[in-house]
Design a protein around this nucleic acid. Structure first.
Lengths: 212, 212, 212, 212
DNA sequence: TATGAATGAGCGTTCATTCAT
DNA sequence: GATGAATGAACGCTCATTCAT
């Protein structure tokens, strides 16, 4: 943040963060050394400690930076007025999937090292993580109030299912359990919303096409 | 295997495995020492290495032991004849949630340290993990063939959503983001199936109550 | 020594000693485990401690057992009356080389792990080792007194050269730096005596053929 | 290599190597800890691993460093033109004995832990060790071709005897089996050459005094 | 005798972090 | 800012040895 930003100058801090994404994604946070990150960034590893207090702080920053963007996006989607819940959820799914599409390594790191590793140091981010679920829950809750979503499935519960399904898709891509093509990414957006909102079962009402 | 099994005799190997569950769950695999496991088991440090080749092997065994039981359960459910897909999925959800209910620490370890940590050593278990998804996918595929489930959502995709939703619920319990009561556990079984099969949206056909 | 010697019964103690020779020679004393010795002997490794106080004691016994035989042989050769010094030295060389020929592993262990490792635990055997040199020195000293050997080369010095040359030959065989055939072994006996007694240089007196 | 070389600055890498010589010689390679080396050098434990990959690498470097100097010396002596073989061998003996005189600990380490321990890791240095014998053998071979040395003792064999005799002398000094005075060292040079070249026996031709 | 489970001190190695330059 | 030498706590693993059976 406070790093030199003179035009033309290389932002070493950013360089290190980006290198960390690559290295954490490739080797895993616990299986890489600070020097691996420094090497990837092409800087002396002492410099890492000039910009960051610890190895964990790098991960923290990577997570917070990206996660906040998502929180903001969800909040913004949440604020949209006359948009149907299904469309809002499509936008959320879309945002998360596009995040992976554009920065697969970063999302891999966030999911593998933070989101699901919350028992160790990720615990400090639990509140932030919960915020995302809460944001999604609000979308669901609105729909419940409007009678569009079933009343017997709590918004919190529904939000967890929805987010869980998406994160599982990302995990599938991350670990090469699902095919990764542009079509898959794009199709997944609608399908996950269809699956969760419309359900897997064939129904009389049918699945309404998403307008997004 | 070759451990003493006379009634009354303590199986130290089992003791160590159980202690490992406790310690791995409490401190995380990477934040505990082998001596922590030995201490928890009340055995000498070296005995751990008498029974296991490495710290990782303990985790591997914990995972494989439990995961195989789940794979067998899914396979068995899959083989059931005239049972509706929704009921089968209920049984799967039920099995997984009960697994957590009865052995929360073990499931925490499996999810946090193996299932979602597949980028590091968990990688060696990817095939086993994939088998679970495949088992669920078969249930979905049958339902699709019978016209009960939508044809435009692939079985693999649906299985990922379904499993992801359940694992997210477990994560919610693990990290205290969702309330943990017997009612919650029990209710979650039906709700997650309702959510995924019937969808969140209110539909004409309505959500059929599960017969399980 | 005190082991059971009932006819037909296998002497486990001897079994362990022989296994130790094989294992120490193959892996080196420091790079093998007691269990390796037990495995080679086909006994439980607890039994090793029934017969020996420690791993080192096995080596000590192997050394002392064989070395004493050599000391006795040298002493006996030394005592021979009217035999020329060169013939006596031939007999010594012969004895040592035959020892290697018949028990290469044992001699390898003795040379590699004891004789030249005298800085660590081998130090306790220094006196025994010195005895061998002293025995050879006596043969040389007699020859000096009789005027057959040069007076300006002390017997101790000469003994060291003689023994060193032989041990080096054994090392050459042990480490495959010299060809190992029956002819080589046999020829070496005479050649090493020729070299040390007669010298490498061509002389008027010539090298007297050994009568042994 | 990259260590600070400004005058007055201490080369920690060299410091560690020298400390290792002292410690390896005193306690033996297998009976000392890396921390003993670090303590002796007065540096932190980790610094040893900053400069060396392992404990063994330190020994390897100590050996290779010194051994190469000896190989070069032998090669140079070998190349000398009109010098008699006996004088060349005197120079070789002289070089080795002086090596011990000036760096007894280093030579002790090399002989005890590498040269004669070639069955374990020393095996990797066998080729280097063999080179020394080959260098000496060339000197002998030249003498044989010129008719100065006996034709029936092969150069390789003679070289082994010669080197073995010298190493045995060093062993004698190392283990305090031979008196260590400047006179002893100096005298040994000529005596070992006399013994091997001229032989122990009194001959008509007599032992020519060495011109070195 | 014979077994091998049990013990625990010991050691090599790693690596996050500090700091002098 | 930038470097990388220096630090040392921590930890996984080994294995000689003991001991209950």
């Amino acid at each position: 943040m406070g790093a030199s930003q003179r035009s033309g100058a290389v932002d070493k801090r950013r360089l290190i963060l980006d290198a960390a994404i690559t290295v954490f994604a490739r080797q895993g946070f616990h299986h890489c050394r600070v020097s691996d990150v420094a090497d990837e960034a092409g800087v002396a590893y002492g410099l890492v400690y000039h910009y960051f207090d610890s190895k964990e702080e790098i991960l923290n920053e990577l997570f917070l930076e990206r996660w906040q963007i998502m929180l903001d996006a969800i909040a913004e989607i949440d604020r949209l007025g006359e948009v149907p819940a299904r469309d809002k959820l499509y936008m959320v799914a879309s945002f998360i999937i596009d995040s992976y599409r554009h920065q697969p390594d970063l999302m891999k790191v966030i999911i593998v090292e933070v989101t699901r590793a919350a028992n160790s140091f990720g615990r400090i981010h639990l509140e932030k993580i919960r915020e995302a679920y809460a944001g999604i829950a609000e979308i669901v809750e609105s729909a419940r109030r409007e009678g569009v979503f079933k009343p017997d499935i709590s918004a919190e519960f529904a939000a967890m299912c929805f987010y869980g399904a998406i994160e599982q898709l990302l995990s599938g891509w991350i670990f090469d359990l699902l095919p990764q093509t542009e079509e898959q990414y794009e199709g997944a957006k609608g399908l996950v919303v269809d699956a969760i909102c419309g359900g897997l079962e064939v129904s009389k009402s049918g699945a309404q096409p998403v307008s997004g």
